[in-house]
Nucleic acid binder design. Sequence first.
DNA 1: CCATACCGTTGAGAAAGTCAATGATGTAGA
DNA 2: TCTACATCATTGACTTTCTCAACGGTATGG
Lengths: 176, 176
Amino acid sequence: MSTTTDQATPERSAAEGSPEEPSSAASASEPSDGTERFLDSDLALQVHFLASRARGRGISHANRQLEGLDLKVRQFSVLSLAASGMNPSQRELGEFLSLDPSQIVALVDHLEKRGAVRRETDPRDRRSKIIVATESGEDLHAQALKILTDSEDHTLSTLSPRERKQLRSLLLKIAF
Amino acid sequence: MSTTTDQATPERSAAEGSPEEPSSAASASEPSDGTERFLDSDLALQVHFLASRARGRGISHANRQLEGLDLKVRQFSVLSLAASGMNPSQRELGEFLSLDPSQIVALVDHLEKRGAVRRETDPRDRRSKIIVATESGEDLHAQALKILTDSEDHTLSTLSPRERKQLRSLLLKIAF
DNA sequence: CCATACCGTTGAGAAAGTCAATGATGTAGA
DNA sequence: TCTACATCATTGACTTTCTCAACGGTATGG
């Protein structure tokens, strides 16, 4: 798909004055800078590149929206599983989130100090620590989930409901 | 545009004890580990999570396959655009790859020392440096592209050709 | 000529990722 | 039972990646 009237030929580069500017912190977005001409490169065909960009945009936006809760997507992912009622251990958290156990420690430490989660020694295996959300943690999670849902809705705004479903389904197939 | 808060880039796949081909006689279920029970969590519905995991797995595998060329996906992305004939400037590289200009400097420095790319001052704007691949750089790119194509083929092995096309199309829509 | 904006570069510090080692605990086998 | 080995959370050291501010060289518009 090409909505560009531009071509790959390096003819000129500065014929347009200054398009616009990121006036303050509001609308803005749509980083359609002028690098769309690279969409024809073979790099742009690679899924890892597209996934990286999509992910980057999504997480970036989500993190901005979460600022009010002083929470990051990274922390939310742990909190979310802790609040899921599925009683994940730290090792499981690491597996599922593709994070090193040492990072889980730091994440849980942070959330625990904040009073959002609690470490509970698994009675069946005292080496293992089950991470569960506190009441305020569940509160926080509910608020964050709402914000993230809206954020994702924004991120996927160019996709129809059907396409969104397809996207999730396809990603799920290759994510595990 | 500068993305304010962004998250990292997990490039590790804890879920892989043995790279290579899974095969084996085992039943080989979806998740390599045993954390599939979390697929019902609301976290697993979030596109950013799925994209992160998919991306992590893909890049991780790709990087392993590229080890023989002593090249990383990150470096390839710059080399690829340099070898595209589109004469990208460093600023454009940064925009397109969502990387800070300072990171582009480091990446180009590395590739230049290796003799894969060359900095050419843009005659139209002497502030700007056009990055072009050398002959050996184009060679390297060709080899890497082949490896990455195979790698992606492996990463997307659970998807039909039609689904792969859909996935690229959907990601493209939300990546820009 | 001057003010302003942009490009690449440098440097510093924060965040994230990687890896090895350790204490506590669990498990299987002699 | 005792013993060897594996697993879990944790710590610490280190590398990579990210983010931001500042600076010199260059362009652009008065």
